[in-house]
Amino acid sequence: MVDIVSEHESEKTVEIVLKTIGPAPPSRLRVPSSIKVRDLRRLIASNGHLPIDNLSLILRGTALCDLKNGDDVRMQLNDGDSLIVAVKPKPPVKDGHDNDDDDEDLKFQLPQSSSRWKKKLYSFLHDKLKLPDIILMVIFTLSLKAWVLIIMWFILAPVAHRWDLGPLYILATGFCLILFNLGKRKAGDSSAYSIFNEDFRELPGTLNADRFDRDIRAGQF
Score class of each variant (00 low, 15 high):
Phe124Lys: 03
Glu11Gly: 11
Gly96His: 02
Ser82Thr: 14
Ser33Cys: 07
Asp213Asn: 04
Tyr193Glu: 06
Leu177Glu: 05
Asp189Glu: 13
Ile52Arg: 14
Val148Gln: 15
Ser34Pro: 00
Val85Glu: 09
Ser143Gly: 06
Asn54Cys: 05
Ile21Lys: 15
Asp66Asn: 15
Glu104Asn: 07
Leu50Asn: 01
Phe140Trp: 08
Ala218Met: 02
Gln112Tyr: 13
Leu106Ile: 10
Gly48Asp: 12
Pro25Leu: 00
Thr141Ile: 01
Phe221Gln: 09
Val159Ser: 06
Val5Ser: 11
His126Gln: 10
Asp127Lys: 05
Leu182Gln: 12
Asn99Arg: 14
Ala218Tyr: 07
Ile135Glu: 15
Leu207Thr: 08
Glu9Phe: 13
Ile170Tyr: 10
Arg38Cys: 03
Cys176Gly: 03
Asn99Met: 15
Gln76Pro: 00
Lys94Gly: 04
Pro158Arg: 05
Val73Trp: 01
Leu182Asn: 05
Leu149Asp: 14
Ser194Tyr: 15
Asp98Ala: 10
Ser6Trp: 13
Asp210Ile: 07
Trp117Ala: 05
Asp210Gln: 11
Ser34Tyr: 04
Pro132Asp: 08
Glu198Lys: 00
Thr20Asn: 00
Ile44Trp: 11
Val14Phe: 04
Pro92Asp: 07
Leu203Ala: 03
Lys128Leu: 15
Pro92Phe: 06
Pro91Val: 05
Leu18Asp: 05
Leu129Val: 09
Ile195Leu: 09
Ile170Trp: 09
Asp102Met: 09
Arg30Asn: 08
Ser56Pro: 00
Gly219His: 06
Ser115Cys: 12
Asp66Tyr: 03
Leu136Ser: 04
Arg41Thr: 12
Asp105Tyr: 09
Leu57Gln: 04
Asp199Asn: 13
Arg185Met: 14
Arg162Cys: 05
Lys107Cys: 10
Ile135Val: 14
Asn181Tyr: 07
Lys36Val: 02
Ile216Pro: 00
Pro92Asn: 11
Trp117Val: 14
Asp95Arg: 09
His161Ser: 12
Leu55Gly: 11
Ser191Asn: 14
Val73Ser: 00
Pro167Ser: 15
Ser82Met: 09
Val73Met: 03
Trp153Asn: 13
Met137Gly: 04
Phe196Met: 11
Leu43Trp: 02
Leu129Ala: 15
Gly205Leu: 04
Ala160Arg: 01
Arg214Cys: 01
Phe200Asn: 10
Asp210Asn: 10
Asn197Arg: 06
Ser143Gln: 07
Lys68Pro: 00
Tyr193Ser: 02
Leu83Glu: 11
Leu207Tyr: 09
Pro32Tyr: 07
Lys130Asn: 15
Ala160Ile: 01
Ser191Phe: 10
Asp71His: 13
Ser194Cys: 03
Ser190Thr: 07
Leu121Cys: 13
Lys68His: 11
Gly205Val: 01
Arg162Glu: 06
Leu43Phe: 04
Lys145Trp: 05
Lys118Leu: 07
Leu129Ser: 14
Arg116Met: 12
Ile151Met: 07
Leu18Arg: 06
Asp164Trp: 12
Glu198Phe: 02
Asn78Met: 06
Arg185Ser: 07
Gly22Cys: 02
Ala86Arg: 12
Ile84Asp: 10
Ala45His: 03
Asp81Asn: 10
Arg214Trp: 03
Ile150Met: 10
Pro51Glu: 02
Gly188Val: 07
Ser27Thr: 09
Pro26Cys: 08
Lys90Gln: 12
Ser115Phe: 10
Ser33Phe: 03
Val148Asp: 15
Ile135Ala: 14
Trp153Phe: 13
Phe175Leu: 13
Leu203Tyr: 01
Ser123Asn: 07
Pro51His: 05
